[in-house]
Design a protein around this nucleic acid. Structure first.
Lengths: 109, 109
DNA sequence: GAATATGTTATCATGTAAGATAACCTTGTC
DNA sequence: GACAAGGTTATCTTACATGATAACATATTC
C-alpha cells in the first residue's frame, strides 16, 4: 500500500505540464481518432495538407479520423500519421490487473 | 536546461523496478516482435496455446512474431495478442525533437 | 449567391494482413 | 530411430485497410 503504483506515478507525472504534453497514453482504438485529430490540429494542418504529406487523399485522412469508423488501421498507418504531425508512436504493454485492483475498468469484453 | 525532459523523467521512472515492469515503451515495429515473444513466453504460453486462445493457428502467431517479417500488423491484432497474454496495449505519441536534441536518432527516413 | 476552404460520405479498385492447411526442422524422450 | 512438442516456412484463400475519385455539406469571404 505504501509502494507507489503506476497510477500514482502517472498522476504525478501528468501534473507536470511539460511532461504532460509529451506523454499521452490511451486505450487503443477508442480515443485514438480524437487523439489523431488533436495532433493534426495542433500542428496547424488541415486534412488536405496532411494528406499531401502522406501522399494520399483527404478523404482517407477523414476516414482514419472518423470516430465512428469501424476500421482497425495498420500500425504503419498510425506511425506515418504520427510522424507527419511531428510525433513518434510508441507502444506500451501494461499488465492487466484483472484482480482486486483499483482503476482497472478499461477492459471491454 | 534545468527543466527535466521526458528523457530524464523516463530514466528516473524506469529506475524503479516496479514501474519498469509496467511501463514499456518501444519504437514501433522494430522491437515489437521481440516484445511480443517475451510477453508470450513470460505468460508461459506456446505459440500453439496462444493461437488457440485467439482462435487461430500457430503458424499465424509465428508469422506475427517473426522478426524478419515485413508485415505491418493491424492495431487490433496487437491488441488481441496483448490481451491474450494478460496485457493491455496503449499508444503513446511522443514529440519528435528533430532539432538539436539529444537521443533522437530513431527516425528512419 | 458564386467561390473557396475544410471536412464528410459513398463507391470501387488495389494491396496486403490474417485465416487455414500442410510440410518441414529441431530438440528431447522413449 | 520413431515419436511428440515447439516453432518455421510456403501457399492459397479470404477479409479488410488503404488508394483514388467524386459528390455532398457547411461555413466563410468576396
Amino acid at each position: 500500500m505504501t509502494r507507489p503504483t503506476f497510477h500514482d506515478f502517472k498522476k504525478k507525472a501528468l501534473s507536470d505540464p511539460d511532461v504532460r504534453a509529451e506523454y499521452e497514453a490511451l486505450s487503443p482504438a477508442y480515443h485514438l481518432r480524437k487523439k489523431l485529430i488533436g495532433l493534426r490540429k495542433n500542428a496547424g494542418l488541415t486534412q488536405d495538407e496532411l494528406a499531401k504529406r502522406l501522399h494520399t487523399q483527404k478523404s482517407n485522412i477523414s476516414r482514419l479520423e472518423s470516430v465512428n469508423s469501424k476500421i482497425s488501421p495498420k500500425l504503419s498507418t498510425i506511425e506515418e500519421y504520427a510522424k507527419a504531425v511531428g510525433f513518434k508512436l510508441e507502444l506500451d504493454f501494461v499488465p492487466q490487473k484483472t484482480l482486486k485492483s483499483h482503476n482497472n475498468r478499461m477492459n471491454s469484453d
